[in-house]
Design a binder for these strands. Structure first.
Length: 279
DNA sequence: ATGACGTTATTGTAACGA
């Protein structure tokens, strides 16, 4: 299985580019974030003509997540348990959930397409929301892997955290000043790893960014952030044989500000695993 | 210069992003 994640920053604005990438790169499962539309507005036809099933979860013009897959998509969920909600001016336990998580099972792999809240500012209610959201995700992960230690679980998407200083090349992103690099966010990311997940890309692609702001020549200057990840349980991480960050997708006409991240998995029963058996 | 850049709501202006 070739698994990818991409914050597309509007699927309607970039459907041709997105499908072209999936086909050209032979992607089996593409998790998308920031589709910025409701399901009835999603350009399903372009994906279906290219051989993909699609599940989309969007409530309005904000956020929105989707999964395109060559194999059938089952066990679809629109939130993980206890996922907090948010509504500006109506913070609290009763705030409605946003379209930031889509879970599904594909060829035995449990995949979550995740768009972690931005945080907006260190003193903003959205920052508290971000930390609560990540804690609920950690708790879900820990419970799930305690019950099913051998589950191939993939948490993929835009985590809106640069886990180490090496993941921050943007001079305007500064610890103590902006989100994405605070000790609290980094601790929340580490807690996810401690719950049984591995960053499956870093060992194979040790450097590089996945996002560059549209403003101030950030991409030509290569002043980006590494904030998009493919995290996997041990069963999933052990199956990773290759990983890529597709920096070139930040080039050309109307690019997203994020680029795709891809892993190749060799799972038991892979139909395309044609290597000879050697004893 | 409280903006730069881009998308979506909408059609003048605001929210949101990281």
């Amino acid at each position: 299985m070739r698994l990818a994640t991409w914050n597309v920053n509007s699927i309607r604005a970039r459907v041709v580019r997105t499908v072209d990438f999936a086909v050209r790169e032979n992607i089996d499962v593409l998790a998308m974030q920031e589709i910025k539309c409701k399901p009835e507005q999603f350009p399903y036809e372009a994906f279906e003509e290219a051989g993909y099933h699609v599940e989309a979860h969007g409530l309005n013009q904000w956020n929105g997540v989707a999964i395109a897959s060559r194999s059938p998509i089952t066990e679809v969920e629109h939130a993980f348990p206890d996922m907090p909600g948010f509504l500006k001016g109506h913070e609290g336990p009763d705030a409605p959930q946003e379209a930031r998580a889509l879970g599904a099972t594909i060829d035995g792999v449990k995949v979550w397409s995740l768009y972690v809240p931005n945080g907006r500012g260190l003193d903003d209610p959205h920052f508290t929301y971000k930390l609560h959201w990540l804690e609920a995700l950690r708790a879900y992960t820990q419970r799930t892997l305690a019950a099913q230690p051998d589950l191939p679980l993939a948490l993929v998407g835009d985590f809106n955290i640069a886990p180490t200083d090496a993941d921050n090349g943007d001079p305007t992103v500064v610890e103590g000043v902006t989100t994405h690099v605070s000790p609290e966010e980094r601790a929340a990311f580490q807690a996810l790893l401690d719950a049984g997940l591995t960053d499956t890309v870093r060992p194979l692609v040790p450097t590089g960014y996945t996002y560059w702001d549209y403003k101030q020549l950030r991409f030509p200057r290569n002043e980006g952030l590494r904030i998009d990840f493919i995290l996997g349980s041990s069963a999933l991480a052990d199956a990773v044989v290759a990983a890529e960050i597709h920096r070139n997708e930040r080039k050309g006409e109307i690019p997203s500000d994020h680029v795709p991240v891809v892993v190749d998995l060799e799972l038991d029963g892979d139909a395309d695993d044609d290597r000879p058996m050697i004893f």
